[in-house]
């Protein structure tokens, strides 16, 4: 156990915990599914640090891959597949145009 592994574990823990909070707080459902996938992926890296490579393989393949696939397909079926509206994109375009006009 070296110092660098400690720092990697601390960083991964912070990522996983903040992604888990984000799952409950973010409004868009696609973003929530993506945050759950991030939780699973960070957990897989933590399993590698804990000397469990088989669990890490399974978690990365099933937890991050298959599970988010199931959730995304369920989002389509449930009618919640909405990319954050035309409105925010228009706001973004307006902001970019404003920046260009200012420059």
């Amino acid at each position: 156990m070296t110092e660098i592994e400690l720092w990697i574990a601390a960083l991964l823990s912070l990522t996983v915990l903040s992604a888990a909070v984000l799952v409950l707080l973010v409004k868009n459902h696609i973003a929530a599914v993506a945050a759950a996938s991030v939780v699973s992926l960070g957990l897989a890296l933590l399993f590698v640090l804990m000397r469990a490579p088989d669990v890490a393989m399974t978690e990365a393949a099933i937890g991050a891959g298959l599970s988010s696939l199931i959730l995304a397909l369920a989002l389509r079926r449930l009618g919640l597949w909405q990319i954050d509206g035309v409105k925010s994109r228009q706001n973004l375009i307006k902001a970019i145009n404003g920046v260009e006009r200012d420059a």
């Binding site: 799952v23 459902h29 699973s40 449930l78």
Partner: peptide, 17 residues
């Protein structure tokens, strides 16, 4: 209810860890 399913997934990941 969909958010509830996602929260269940997170709790299960913590139990695995």
């Amino acid at each position: 209810l969909f958010r509830m399913v996602l929260a269940l997934v997170i709790a299960e990941a913590g139990a695995n860890l």
